[in-house]
Amino acid sequence: MVKIFVGGLRPDVSELDLVMYISLYAQVNTIKVVRDKVTKRCKGYAFLEMASQAEAEKAVSVLNGETFSGQVLNIKISEEPAPAPKPYVKANKPYANKRPRS
């Protein structure tokens, strides 16, 4: 799956309206509208997952700069962050339950 960023959203945007608008041009698998924890209003952006790279590119090329609910959309393919390096952990050897030989 490919994730896209959608910016320029109104504070009162609904997930259903956004999905219905974007799905006219590309298939949307999941959506996450980023909201304020207290007010539950949209912070102005969302992330959507598309089934393929081609669907994501189609959505970006058709919808970037278009108007949705009176706002100009900023849509781009989201860059995946590089995986964080794993911390060094010294391996502990398990203690063997052996009795000393006599």
Rank of each mutant, 00 (worst) to 15 (best):
M1E: 14
V2A: 05
V2D: 05
I4N: 04
I4Y: 02
G7V: 01
G7P: 00
G7Q: 01
G7S: 00
G7T: 03
G7I: 05
G8Q: 08
L9P: 05
L9N: 06
L9H: 06
R10M: 02
R10Q: 08
P11R: 11
P11H: 09
P11C: 05
D12Y: 12
V13W: 08
V13H: 07
S14M: 07
E15P: 05
E15K: 04
L16Q: 12
D17Y: 01
D17T: 08
L18Q: 09
V19T: 04
V19P: 00
Y21Q: 08
I22H: 03
I22T: 02
I22Y: 02
L24W: 07
A26M: 01
T30P: 07
T30N: 15
I31S: 09
K32P: 11
V33G: 13
R35S: 01
D36T: 04
D36L: 02
D36P: 05
V38Y: 15
V38M: 13
V38G: 06
V38N: 15
T39V: 00
K40M: 12
K40E: 12
R41A: 13
R41W: 14
R41I: 10
C42W: 04
G44N: 04
G44D: 05
G44I: 07
Y45F: 15
A46F: 08
F47E: 02
F47W: 02
L48T: 01
L48I: 03
E49W: 01
E49P: 06
M50C: 01
M50L: 03
S52K: 10
Q53L: 14
Q53K: 14
E55S: 01
E55V: 00
A56K: 02
A56T: 03
E57G: 09
E57L: 06
A59E: 06
V60P: 00
V60C: 07
V62C: 03
V62Q: 06
L63Q: 03
L63Y: 00
N64H: 08
G65F: 09
E66K: 15
T67I: 14
F68Q: 12
S69N: 15
S69P: 03
G70E: 10
Q71A: 11
Q71Y: 13
V72Y: 09
V72C: 12
V72D: 08
N74M: 10
N74K: 14
N74G: 10
I75P: 00
I75W: 00
K76R: 14
K76W: 01
K76Y: 06
I77H: 00
I77C: 04
I77L: 04
S78Y: 11
S78P: 04
E79T: 11
E80G: 02
A82F: 07
A82I: 08
A82W: 04
P83N: 03
A84T: 05
A84C: 08
K86S: 10
K86I: 07
K86N: 09
V89R: 12
V89C: 07
K90Q: 14
A91D: 07
A91G: 03
A91L: 13
N92G: 10
N92F: 12
P94A: 10
P94M: 11
P94E: 14
Y95L: 12
Y95C: 03
